[in-house]
């Protein structure tokens, strides 16, 4: 009984406390860099698209709101189109988790409200930024052992030059 009265009293005292609500949009809250907001596609340190259109983000997406098509230039894969339907996106960040190249990243921007739902469909041009995002140094193609323009077989990180098949040495 006393406990109950004490609870009531303590709760009542909260009427005189500071209120934690931030009066958005008059006040802007601080969002940490890893806040899961609007999705972007980043570029690698050389300024090339990081996305290699592996489709892992699309398959990880629980609401199936990512779609893309692979294209290729001299061994380098990139998305021919990359489309996110933000009217379906739930900002779970699974796509970022799934991305093997740090291409897809979620940003602290969440102010995406629109009056027309169709405008929430973002194409690659809308998603691609000019920077590297949260991972300034990573480049998938420097690590993976595939040949692209400007990098031949055996020139990736941790690779020996190609084997000479015709040598008689052991």
């Amino acid at each position: 009984m006393l406990d109950t009265m004490r609870t009531l009293f303590l709760t009542f005292l909260h009427a005189f406390r500071h209120r934690v609500t931030i009066q958005y949009p008059e006040e802007k809250p601080y969002l940490p860099p890893r806040y899961r907001g609007r999705i972007i596609l980043s570029r690698d340190p050389d300024g090339e698209e990081r996305c290699v259109s592996c489709n892992l983000c699309a398959v990880a997406c629980p609401v199936d709101c990512i779609s893309l098509q692979k294209a290729e230039v001299e061994g380098r894969w990139y998305p021919e189109y990359f489309r996110i339907n933000f009217s379906r996106c739930i900002f779970c960040g699974f796509c970022e988790e799934a991305c093997p190249t740090y291409a897809i990243q979620l940003t602290p921007d969440f102010e995406m409200g629109e009056y027309v739902r169709q405008t929430l469909v973002y194409e690659k041009e809308d998603l691609l930024i000019s920077g590297t995002g949260k991972y300034p140094d990573y480049s998938f193609y420097r690590v993976a052992g595939v040949r692209i323009a400007g990098k031949d077989w055996g020139e990736s990180e941790h690779e020996r030059p190609p084997v000479d098949l015709r040598t008689l040495l052991p």
């Binding site: 199936d64 709101c65 489309r83 379906r88 194409e123």
Partner: peptide, 15 residues
């Protein structure tokens, strides 16, 4: 069962 992009694949035509 894990086909992707169901809600987006034709959303450039209509959302």
């Amino acid at each position: 069962h894990r086909a992707s992009g169901r809600t987006v694949i034709r959303s450039h035509i209509s959302v």
